[in-house]
Protein backbone atom coordinates (compact mmCIF):
# COMPACT_ATOMS: atom_id res chain seq x y z
CA UNK A 1 0.00 0.00 0.00
CA UNK A 2 2.70 2.43 1.02
CA UNK A 3 4.63 1.60 -2.13
CA UNK A 4 1.59 2.25 -4.27
CA UNK A 5 0.94 5.61 -2.68
CA UNK A 6 4.55 6.60 -3.12
CA UNK A 7 4.42 5.76 -6.77
CA UNK A 8 1.44 8.02 -7.28
CA UNK A 9 2.87 10.81 -5.22
CA UNK A 10 4.79 13.68 -6.82
CA UNK A 11 6.60 15.52 -4.07
CA UNK A 12 7.48 18.56 -6.13
CA UNK A 13 3.88 19.12 -7.21
CA UNK A 14 2.67 18.58 -3.65
CA UNK A 15 5.03 21.29 -2.41
CA UNK A 16 3.98 23.71 -5.14
CA UNK A 17 0.31 23.19 -4.23
CA UNK A 18 1.06 23.78 -0.61
CA UNK A 19 2.90 27.02 -1.42
CA UNK A 20 -0.29 28.15 -3.14
CA UNK A 21 -2.37 27.29 -0.09
CA UNK A 22 -3.87 24.27 -1.91
CA UNK A 23 -6.36 26.66 -3.47
CA UNK A 24 -8.18 25.44 -6.60
CA UNK A 25 -8.13 28.94 -8.11
CA UNK A 26 -4.34 28.72 -8.23
CA UNK A 27 -4.54 25.71 -10.56
CA UNK A 28 -3.09 27.45 -13.63
CA UNK A 29 -0.14 28.80 -11.64
CA UNK A 30 0.45 25.39 -10.07
CA UNK A 31 0.42 23.73 -13.48
CA UNK A 32 2.81 26.36 -14.86
CA UNK A 33 5.26 25.87 -12.00
CA UNK A 34 5.07 22.08 -12.11
CA UNK A 35 5.70 22.13 -15.84
CA UNK A 36 8.58 24.55 -15.42
CA UNK A 37 10.22 22.14 -13.00
CA UNK A 38 9.57 18.90 -14.93
CA UNK A 39 9.26 20.26 -18.49
CA UNK A 40 5.88 18.48 -18.79
CA UNK A 41 2.92 17.35 -16.69
CA UNK A 42 3.19 13.70 -15.71
CA UNK A 43 0.31 11.47 -14.57
CA UNK A 44 1.80 11.45 -11.08
CA UNK A 45 1.94 15.23 -10.95
CA UNK A 46 -1.68 15.62 -12.09
CA UNK A 47 -2.88 12.98 -9.63
CA UNK A 48 -1.04 14.67 -6.79
CA UNK A 49 -2.37 18.11 -7.71
CA UNK A 50 -5.94 16.79 -7.93
CA UNK A 51 -5.53 15.29 -4.49
CA UNK A 52 -3.94 18.37 -2.94
CA UNK A 53 -6.55 20.77 -4.31
CA UNK A 54 -9.38 18.33 -3.67
CA UNK A 55 -10.70 18.47 -7.23
CA UNK A 56 -11.52 15.59 -9.54
CA UNK A 57 -8.99 14.26 -12.00
CA UNK A 58 -11.51 14.82 -14.79
CA UNK A 59 -11.60 18.47 -13.87
CA UNK A 60 -7.84 18.77 -13.99
CA UNK A 61 -7.65 17.00 -17.34
CA UNK A 62 -10.29 19.38 -18.63
CA UNK A 63 -8.13 22.33 -17.71
CA UNK A 64 -4.87 20.84 -18.97
CA UNK A 65 -6.37 19.96 -22.35
CA UNK A 66 -8.02 23.37 -22.76
CA UNK A 67 -4.81 25.41 -22.73
CA UNK A 68 -2.17 25.16 -25.46
CA UNK A 69 0.76 25.74 -23.05
CA UNK A 70 0.47 22.52 -21.10
CA UNK A 71 2.30 19.41 -22.27
CA UNK A 72 1.59 15.83 -21.28
CA UNK A 73 4.80 14.44 -22.73
CA UNK A 74 8.47 15.27 -22.34
CA UNK A 75 9.39 17.90 -24.93
CA UNK A 76 12.46 18.03 -27.17
CA UNK A 77 15.68 19.49 -25.75
CA UNK A 78 15.15 22.75 -27.60
CA UNK A 79 11.86 24.31 -28.57
CA UNK A 80 11.37 26.58 -31.54
CA UNK A 81 8.07 28.43 -31.61
CA UNK A 82 7.45 30.29 -34.85
CA UNK A 83 4.70 32.90 -34.94
CA UNK A 84 2.16 31.96 -37.58
CA UNK A 85 -0.32 34.81 -37.08
CA UNK A 86 -1.26 37.39 -39.71
CA UNK A 87 1.37 40.10 -39.19
CA UNK A 88 4.16 37.55 -39.37
CA UNK A 89 2.50 35.79 -42.32
CA UNK A 90 2.74 39.14 -44.12
CA UNK A 91 6.54 39.03 -43.88
CA UNK A 92 7.19 35.39 -44.65
CA UNK A 93 6.62 33.32 -41.51
CA UNK A 94 5.11 30.51 -43.57
CA UNK A 95 8.31 30.18 -45.60
CA UNK A 96 10.32 30.35 -42.38
CA UNK A 97 8.27 27.53 -40.87
CA UNK A 98 8.61 25.46 -44.04
CA UNK A 99 12.36 25.95 -43.90
CA UNK A 100 12.48 24.86 -40.27
CA UNK A 101 10.40 21.76 -41.04
CA UNK A 102 12.86 20.79 -43.76
CA UNK A 103 15.97 21.63 -41.80
CA UNK A 104 15.01 19.66 -38.69
CA UNK A 105 12.92 17.07 -40.52
CA UNK A 106 9.81 17.41 -38.46
CA UNK A 107 6.34 18.78 -39.10
CA UNK A 108 5.17 21.67 -36.93
CA UNK A 109 3.91 20.16 -33.71
CA UNK A 110 6.50 17.39 -33.81
CA UNK A 111 10.08 16.78 -32.74
CA UNK A 112 13.20 15.86 -34.67
CA UNK A 113 14.22 12.18 -34.77
CA UNK A 114 17.03 12.74 -32.24
CA UNK A 115 14.53 14.60 -30.00
CA UNK A 116 16.81 17.63 -30.00
CA UNK A 117 14.46 20.04 -31.73
CA UNK A 118 10.75 20.56 -31.20
CA UNK A 119 8.87 22.77 -33.64
CA UNK A 120 5.71 24.59 -32.57
CA UNK A 121 3.30 27.13 -33.95
CA UNK A 122 2.34 30.13 -31.87
CA UNK A 123 -0.15 32.86 -32.66
CA UNK A 124 1.40 36.24 -31.98
CA UNK A 125 4.28 37.04 -29.68
CA UNK A 126 3.58 40.77 -29.56
CA UNK A 127 6.50 41.47 -31.89
CA UNK A 128 4.37 42.11 -34.96
CA UNK A 129 6.31 45.11 -36.30
CA UNK A 130 9.55 43.12 -36.37
CA UNK A 131 8.38 39.86 -37.83
CA UNK A 132 8.84 37.10 -38.55
CA UNK A 133 8.98 36.51 -34.80
CA UNK A 134 10.07 33.34 -33.08
CA UNK A 135 10.95 32.08 -29.65
CA UNK A 136 13.88 29.76 -29.18
CA UNK A 137 13.89 28.13 -25.75
CA UNK A 138 11.72 30.93 -24.45
CA UNK A 139 13.82 33.77 -25.86
CA UNK A 140 12.11 36.17 -28.23
CA UNK A 141 13.67 37.05 -31.59
CA UNK A 142 12.58 39.42 -34.33
CA UNK A 143 13.26 39.79 -38.08
CA UNK A 144 14.07 36.09 -38.14
CA UNK A 145 15.40 34.83 -41.45
CA UNK A 146 16.01 31.12 -42.09
CA UNK A 147 19.77 31.67 -41.67
CA UNK A 148 19.33 33.57 -38.43
CA UNK A 149 17.04 30.88 -37.05
CA UNK A 150 19.68 28.24 -37.77
CA UNK A 151 22.34 30.35 -36.04
CA UNK A 152 20.16 30.98 -33.01
CA UNK A 153 19.30 27.32 -32.62
CA UNK A 154 22.90 26.20 -33.14
CA UNK A 155 23.97 28.61 -30.42
CA UNK A 156 21.43 27.12 -27.98
CA UNK A 157 22.50 23.59 -28.84
CA UNK A 158 26.18 24.48 -28.36
CA UNK A 159 25.49 26.23 -25.06
CA UNK A 160 23.60 23.19 -23.77
CA UNK A 161 26.34 20.82 -24.86
CA UNK A 162 29.04 23.02 -23.37
CA UNK A 163 27.24 23.16 -20.05
Amino acid sequence: MAALINKLEHEGARAICSRHGNKPEALLEILHKTQQADSYLSDEALRTIADALNISRAEIHGVVSFYHDYRREAPADHIIRICRAEACQAVGSEALAAHAEEKWLTPTGGVSADRQIGLEAVYCLGNCALGPAAMVDGELHGRVTPERLETLVARRVDEAEGA
Binding site: K23, P24, E25, A26, L27, L28, E29, L31, H32, G62, V63, F66, Y67, H68, D69, Y70, V122, Y123
Partner: peptide, 23 residues
Protein backbone atom coordinates in the same frame (compact mmCIF):
# COMPACT_ATOMS: atom_id res chain seq x y z
CA UNK B 1 -2.11 35.86 -13.09
CA UNK B 2 -0.50 34.31 -16.13
CA UNK B 3 -2.51 32.82 -19.00
CA UNK B 4 -1.70 29.51 -20.61
CA UNK B 5 -1.96 30.03 -24.34
CA UNK B 6 -5.61 30.45 -25.24
CA UNK B 7 -6.79 33.33 -27.43
CA UNK B 8 -10.34 33.00 -26.16
CA UNK B 9 -9.21 33.91 -22.62
CA UNK B 10 -9.09 37.52 -23.84
CA UNK B 11 -12.89 37.48 -23.85
CA UNK B 12 -13.90 38.74 -20.45
CA UNK B 13 -16.05 35.89 -19.13
CA UNK B 14 -13.49 33.37 -20.32
CA UNK B 15 -10.70 35.37 -18.65
CA UNK B 16 -12.57 35.40 -15.35
CA UNK B 17 -13.03 31.62 -15.51
CA UNK B 18 -9.32 31.31 -16.17
CA UNK B 19 -8.44 33.53 -13.19
CA UNK B 20 -10.58 31.17 -11.10
CA UNK B 21 -8.33 28.33 -12.26
CA UNK B 22 -10.81 26.78 -14.69
CA UNK B 23 -11.14 26.07 -18.40
Amino acid sequence: RVGAGAYICGEETSMLESIEGKR
